[in-house]
Design a binder for these strands. Sequence first.
DNA 1: TCGATATATTTTAAGCTTAAAATATATCGA
DNA 2: TCGATATATTTTAAGCTTAAAATATATCGA
Lengths: 165, 165
Amino acid sequence: MPMPAYPETSAGLRDGKEKLRLWLKLLDCTHLIERQLRGRFRADFDITLPRFDVLAALDRFPEGLTMGGLSRRLRVSQGNVTGVVERLLKEGEIRRWNPPGDRRTFYIALTEQGQRNFDRMAAAHQAWIDELLGGLAVQEISQLQALLSRAKASVEAKEKSHGDA
Amino acid sequence: MPMPAYPETSAGLRDGKEKLRLWLKLLDCTHLIERQLRGRFRADFDITLPRFDVLAALDRFPEGLTMGGLSRRLRVSQGNVTGVVERLLKEGEIRRWNPPGDRRTFYIALTEQGQRNFDRMAAAHQAWIDELLGGLAVQEISQLQALLSRAKASVEAKEKSHGDA
DNA sequence: TCGATATATTTTAAGCTTAAAATATATCGA
DNA sequence: TCGATATATTTTAAGCTTAAAATATATCGA
């Protein structure tokens, strides 16, 4: 008796594009949610997503983050943070200083004003996410969380073997 | 005997931020993969992600897509597609025409050259995704796919109730 | 101690992205 | 038929993003 060409056939389509489809759906979900958030942040707080992301990163590091640390955390280029940080400095949401002993390095952190504004925005942000993902059961949330961790680990393993930082 | 304050306590942390954490992980995974793909597309084909995305959308519609249809499919603004399409036209990857009877509307589709180039790039793209997500089991892939569909449905339901297109 | 090398950041040039206004064409309804 | 309204797209102004080059400072090793 011949073996079936595709042993996993019962689980669904078996044309070898399952991972590609998964990636496309991941991307689509992200874009969908990002679009919602962008519009709401703009309407309610007149702030962009990239600026909020910087404030959120700094909120987790009250002692401050370097430009490079911020860039790695947000997974954006170094030159990128330069510009966004510049605007947030001008608006008084963050402050910047050199650590003693290294004049190349800059640290940035939230100002009091920035912390106050971030706290308000973060509360709204969480409420929006709760609303948008409200259709998922507690169990689904935790399953997704675990599976995405697995996906992340897979990508990071390949990333290293490829030689990029 | 008092009821526990958080009935689902056994499933993990119960501070009400599970959905937020899930969203942050989703975003992180997406950025991680996007960064890999961007670098590889650039190195191997000297093309940007947005341009590839347009070609991929057109590949699925050999009869052509309107500017608006493309914009909705890619979840980007209308003005955005104008620019990317312009560059692809100049490079000869796509062609554009008015449908008979409506001079407001433009259709675009791949040229032969565009189709040829897309086919090569799509093969590489699929191989990269297969590699990056290679650490996931077949079952995990299909679970993720199903859960992300659920997430997407949840967001789309809220989107409608909020009044945005 | 001082040239070579490494590290941290900014600058540059090009392209991507958005929201809102502007333009052009089509359709609807008296 | 023709003004009002709707639809499809482009333009505009501002900001975001990248990769690579440039700048500035620190560290290493003879």
